[in-house]
Design a protein around this nucleic acid. Structure first.
Length: 199
DNA sequence: CCTGCGATTTGCT
DNA sequence: GCAAATCGCAGGC
């Protein structure tokens, strides 16, 4: 039943392909995880990308080899989880924004207390990081092997309809539709708007 | 339904 | 000094 881990080669491609194809894949951290239902792509020539203005201590993992976690701190209190894409030296990443919880739901509820609604345990980039117990110590670790891992889509998920919309929470690069969602999912961070969605 | 704000820290201008 | 790849709560319609 468990699909194989996505290989390193899966991530060594353009971030938009990776972001789209990560929908329906299974993200797991030490037995706690679920299906990825929402992602966003970020690339070097993109003003919303952390690497747009070059390499810094914070974003250096984005410049490294693909298939690794890029975990960063923001808003003074949240960590967000990305997977590095493309080739070494070509900064790009996919932000994982929402999960449909499947395993370790009791653990997620404990970490996310007082929230208990299944639909609100991991429907946001900071929420899923908290639910899965992801911390800054995982910045730079590979996701194609190890404790933090991503499995491929099951046959059932292959037919999931995917829509692209503008990204959330940014003030530049908003014309790009680089947010990818499982169209019918009830576990998204925000509903897919009637405007701006495509494919 | 929607909008606004506080929390709390980092990093860049 | 202030915006930030956010969240949860309060308040208004």
């Amino acid at each position: 039943m468990a699909e194989p881990l996505l290989p390193l080669s899966f991530y060594r491609r353009d971030a938009n392909s990776v972001a789209r194809e990560l929908i329906g894949c299974f993200l797991d951290h030490e037995g706690v995880g679920g299906y990825i239902v929402e992602t966003e792509a970020y690339r070097r020539d993109d003003p919303a990308c952390h690497a747009y203005n070059g390499r810094t201590v914070r974003n250096e993992v984005m410049f490294g080899p693909p298939g690794r976690a890029y975990v960063y701190f923001t808003y003074g209190m949240h960590h967000l989880f990305n997977v590095v894409c493309e080739g070494e030296g070509e900064p790009a990443a996919v932000l994982v924004r929402a999960l449909e919880p499947v395993t370790g739901i009791d653990v997620m509820r404990r970490r996310r207390a007082p929230v208990s609604d299944l639909h609100q345990l991991a429907n946001g980039p900071a929420k899923l990081v908290e639910a899965l117990g992801i911390g800054p110590e995982l910045n730079g670790v590979p996701v194609y092997r190890g404790r933090l891992k991503i499995r491929g889509r099951t046959a059932d998920c292959q037919k999931t309809r995917i829509v692209a919309t503008p990204r959330i929470g940014i003030r530049v690069g908003t014309r790009r539709r680089w947010r990818y969602c499982a169209a019918e999912s009830r576990f998204l961070s925000r509903k897919v708007g009637s405007k701006g969605a495509s494919r």
